[in-house]
């Protein structure tokens, strides 16, 4: 079957390389341009405005602090200090997505001064130690030394928490937002290379707490491929909430994590 098409003859055919654009086209194109810019601007505003709260974590990398306290390498590198008023546990990390356990071991269980920049999100704190050699210096014990070196360990009972596993560093302030699937790869890298994982369960007000995850005996959770695959996914975990000094931890059997 042969068919015939008769294109509608237009008065002024637009020819791109011609110096003049026909008048009717010029008017239409001007309107299209205005529409594109205005429509795009409106869409941009709506898309920006609807974003979820990224969380209040902060990290001022320019402010380098010297923090005195008692240094612990297990289950995760941390320093217990009175530098911020009262006894406070401050987790330790490097400037990158790596833990500092290997660099800390020589002073594990001693009093020391650590230099770094602070990440803070509510009661959660972490110190990212500076990269140069003098980040760690031994010191003498301070007045509250017993409380710093021997924190009270108190069980708050068993619980089943629903939420997600995330890395403490990003959530404490290195990134905003630092949760959910978009951040999964990053959280998994952080945990793989030694940063403490935390179980984040949202309270009714939306701003939950992140409980540092340990094994049932309070040890370091080995970042196996199976464990890492669950990071940032919606999960349910049974465990025991244990307060170590002021640091809330969640003692779990890593094999008991269930995706929901």
């Amino acid at each position: 079957m042969t068919r015939l098409i008769r294109p509608k003859p237009e008065k002024d055919l637009f020819i791109g390389w011609a110096a003049d654009t026909p008048k009717v086209d010029r008017r239409f194109l001007f309107a299209a341009a205005v529409g594109l810019v205005a429509g795009g601007g409106g869409a941009a505003w709506a898309l920006a405005d609807a974003q979820s709260a990224p969380g209040p974590g902060v990290w001022d990398q320019g402010l380098i602090l010297d923090v005195d306290g008692y240094v612990v390498a297990d289950p995760y590198p941390l320093i217990r200090t009175t530098a911020f008023g009262g006894v406070k546990t401050v987790l330790l990390s490097s400037m990158t997505k790596c833990g500092v356990r290997d660099r800390l071991e020589r002073l594990d269980g001693t009093f020391a001064r650590i230099r770094g920049s602070l990440m803070q999100r509510g009661p959660h704190s972490m110190l990212a130690v500076v990269d140069d050699g003098d980040w760690l210096t031994p010191t003498q014990g301070a007045a509250a030394s017993a409380e710093l070196s021997n924190p009270q360990v108190r069980s708050l009972g068993r619980a089943t928490l629903r939420g997600e596993i995330l890395d403490t560093k990003c959530w404490y302030g290195a990134m905003r937002p630092a949760d959910g699937k978009v951040h999964k790869a990053c959280a998994s890298l952080c945990i793989r290379f030694g940063l403490p994982p935390a179980m984040f369960a949202k309270a009714a007000d939306g701003e939950g707490r992140a409980l540092v995850m340990t094994t049932p005996d309070g040890g370091f959770v080995t970042p196996t491929e199976v464990f890492l695959a669950h990071v940032a996914d919606p999960v349910e975990v049974d465990g025991e909430i244990v307060l170590v000094g002021d640091l809330p931890t969640f003692r779990v059997q890593p094999t008991s994590i269930r995706r929901v």
Partner: peptide, 24 residues
């Protein structure tokens, strides 16, 4: 159009949340 879109998105993103709680 690209410049307007990006500028409005970034300014809008900063204005949505209080200082210190904006997106990184």
């Amino acid at each position: 159009a690209v410049g307007v879109f990006m500028t409005i998105f970034i300014v809008g993103g900063y204005m949505t949340w209080p200082d210190g709680e904006t997106l990184h």
